[in-house]
Simulated assay, not measured.
Amino acid sequence: MIICDARKAMFLRNEGSPTLLKLEVEQIKQASPNPPNGQQGADRPGRMQNAVAPTSATDETDWHDLAEKQFARETAAALNLASQSGRSRGIVLVAPPRILAVLRQHLDEQSRSRIVAEVDKDLTKHPIHAIERLLTGA
């Protein structure tokens, strides 16, 4: 089971049954620090010369969005590695919808075939016992 958001990923193993979860933490990954955009950007937004119209500005780079997507790609790569090693049988993905989309996009075929459920919620800030309760609906 993977519970993640844009900053934290928890790799958990269910030692219980599908209806009575007993989750054990295998690994926790944290994203590297992500300072404000103003500290990461190089300069003001670029300008583009149009052939028939006046000059227009281009969008600023959203460094936070890029870092969040990179962390999701790294999480998917770690899940692919675990899947290839045979450590994971059935995979449950729990993540906000935006992160879930990036995970799906970067999982290999073997990992995708092992997904048994997807939950589009952010549960990374909950303690393990609360996650067990929330996922079983108890």
Rank of each mutant, 00 (worst) to 15 (best):
R114I: 01
A130F: 06
N34S: 05
A53V: 07
N37H: 09
A95Y: 09
R112H: 03
E24D: 10
W63L: 03
E74V: 07
V116W: 04
P33A: 10
T58H: 14
Q49S: 12
K121H: 06
Q70N: 14
L123K: 09
R13L: 04
I131R: 03
V116N: 06
G16T: 00
I3P: 10
T19H: 08
H106G: 12
S56V: 01
P54E: 08
L103N: 11
R114M: 02
I2H: 13
F71W: 06
A6R: 15
L81R: 13
I28F: 00
D122F: 09
A130Q: 08
V25M: 13
S111P: 14
V94M: 01
E26H: 12
D62E: 08
L23H: 06
L23W: 07
S32L: 07
R47W: 14
N80D: 15
K121T: 15
S56A: 10
I28L: 00
D62M: 10
S88Q: 09
L107Y: 02
A101F: 09
A31M: 03
A67Y: 07
R112Q: 03
L103W: 15
E15Y: 13
A82D: 13
P36F: 00
T136V: 03
D108K: 04
K121L: 05
E74F: 12
T75D: 02
T61E: 13
H126N: 07
L100V: 09
D122K: 11
T124M: 00
Q27A: 14
H129C: 10
K125Q: 09
K29Q: 05
F11N: 09
D65Y: 07
F11Y: 12
R47N: 02
P36K: 02
R112A: 01
A76C: 09
G16K: 04
K69H: 05
G137P: 15
M48Q: 07
G41A: 01
S85I: 01
K8P: 13
D62G: 14
Q70R: 15
A31W: 02
T19G: 13
P36W: 00
M48D: 02
L135H: 11
M10H: 14
D43M: 08
A77C: 07
L20D: 07
G137N: 09
Q110T: 13
P18W: 06
L12C: 08
A42D: 04
Q105C: 11
E15N: 08
F11E: 10
D65E: 05
A138R: 11
A31H: 05
I99F: 15
K8G: 10
A31Q: 04
G90N: 06
L81M: 10
